[in-house]
Structure formats: C-alpha cells, structure tokens
Amino acid sequence: MLRIRCPWCGERDETEFRYRGDASQSRPAADAGLAAFSAYVYERKNPRGWHLEWWLHVGGCRRLLKLVRHTLTHEIRVVGTAQDQPSLPQEPGR
C-alpha cells in the first residue's frame, strides 16, 4: 500500500488517489502530427527505477500531484504540485 503525502491534505492512503499515468509525457503542440501524438498516447518507458507520475487526489483536495516514485521499492521521493518540475534521482531507490 502506498502512502502519499499530499502537499494539501497530508499523508493519505493510495486508495484516495487515481493514478493518471506517466508525468514525463507532455502533450505535443496541436500541429505536431500523428507520430508525436501517437508517442504521447502509447509509448511508455516502463523503467525499473525512478518514475515521474500523475496522481489525482480524487478522494481529497482533487488536486493533481506529480510524484517521483521508484517502481521497484515503491519509495516516493517527491510529491509535488502539477506544475513542479522535479528531477529524477540518480541513485537507485532504497
């Protein structure tokens, strides 16, 4: 079970949140073309390690959060707001 420290609500169970996917993807410009949009919708890295993620706190403040989570250890290093730009840690997760 993940416990996510929402910057607005405090630490909450994972069950209050809706996972909204890879936050390293940003939506291409309107005229970027089919390939760019195809990559945006379908292509994912599935890393073994640190991952940037969207989580929507539907059971609380309904704010969108940006998480840095380790896919192997589940360690959550950063819980930021939607506009934060956290960098992924270089070291392996604990």
Partner: peptide, 10 residues
C-alpha cells in the same frame, strides 16, 4: 476526472 486532469496537467 478527465476535465480536472486536463485542466491541471495540460
């Protein structure tokens, strides 16, 4: 949720 996500992320 679809609207909230896009308003905040996109």
């Amino acid at each position: 949720e679809h609207m909230e996500f896009h308003l905040q992320a996109v």
